[in-house]
Design a protein around this nucleic acid. Structure first.
Lengths: 171, 171
DNA sequence: TTGGTCATGTAATTCGTTACATGATTGA
DNA sequence: TCAATCATGTAACGAATTACATGACCAA
């Protein structure tokens, strides 16, 4: 249940409405924790009910601005320092690799070269994103850079792996 | 819904009972697609209902042996060749990185060094697994080796990244 | 005045986890 | 005979996805 913590994390930077948070998920967080509009509004209601956030302002069109409470900040810190990131990592891409013998070697190689292309595209996308951001020296920029660097290294690794793997499959 | 395809994939190698499949999930597939006993029996019933697999033998203790049907094989191949692996990849570990400014630099560095250790341990575990397996030249071994190589490279990459990231965080 | 964006919610369904529940077979 | 393993299932709940539903505000 990390959506909860993702929302607390975003609200720890500044107060925001559900709509604001939705936009920020679409941009910065979409790559690590996708969430739908539906899920977010539901979770925000629950968080408000349990006192981890509270409505501190109301705007036009029924806009509700949420602010992190002291309990919410404590919960966020607890999550960051005391709990193990043990998310079981389902991997659709790798799962298919196990069953490549159900198709022809040509098809299998084609699957792997597609993965190479995908990795290159994602790498390029991240590189462009990095260029477009005006990085400062502040803590938020540092974290963003660290996360982005992960993406770059990950895609480079995956590209090399897919190239190597293609070579392993023979007629 | 890839559990469905994981089961079809395993059954494409040879017929098996729910219990057999459960064991094979625990060993080979646990790292890429964890599933519970409960989920598997439910999914097997659904697959049988939809005609993708069928019960071809009954054993002691109510054991049911399932075999892949022609429709099932077709569905497996369709999944492998026609559908894009677009699984949105939730990443618990990276999500936390975004919020490291909510804790002290010391705590943040501690989180990242833990990640280094974790990657080293997983790398070592996979290396031992590779040693323990009697690899042949058959297609199944090739696929297993490819998947394993991914794990090794991934953990090496993550270790280096975490080391680099630790260094980025200053007082 | 009208189209785009802001803004929030509910309902239905599926997927995944945890817990509960039962019982047959086999080998030491 | 008894413990371990084999073997299958259901129930309750939570998390995630898709679709539905509504309406206010603002700028051109």
């Amino acid at each position: 249940m990390s959506l909860r913590h993702a929302l607390l994390g975003l609200l720890s930077e500044r107060p925001a409405s559900g709509y604001d948070l939705l936009k920020r998920f679409e941009t910065s967080l979409a790559n690590v924790w996708p969430a739908t509009q539906s899920q977010m509004y539901t979770e925000l209601s629950k968080l408000a009910d349990s006192g981890l956030i509270s409505v501190t302002a109301q705007g036009p069109r029924g806009r509700k601005e949420y602010t992190l409470t002291d309990e919410g900040l404590a919960e966020l810190r607890h999550w960051l320092t005391e709990t193990k990131p043990q998310r079981n990592t389902r991997n659709d891409i790798l799962l298919r690799v196990f069953f490549l013998n159900a198709i022809t070697p040509d098809q299998a190689r084609s699957y792997l070269t597609e993965l190479m292309k995908l990795s290159e595209q994602e790498h390029e996308g991240l590189r462009r994103l990095a260029d477009s951001i005006d990085w400062g020296d502040d803590p938020l920029s540092v974290n963003g850079k660290i996360a982005l660097e992960y993406g770059l290294r990950f895609n480079a690794m995956r590209r090399e792996w897919a190239a190597w793997a293609t070579d392993q499959i023979r007629q």
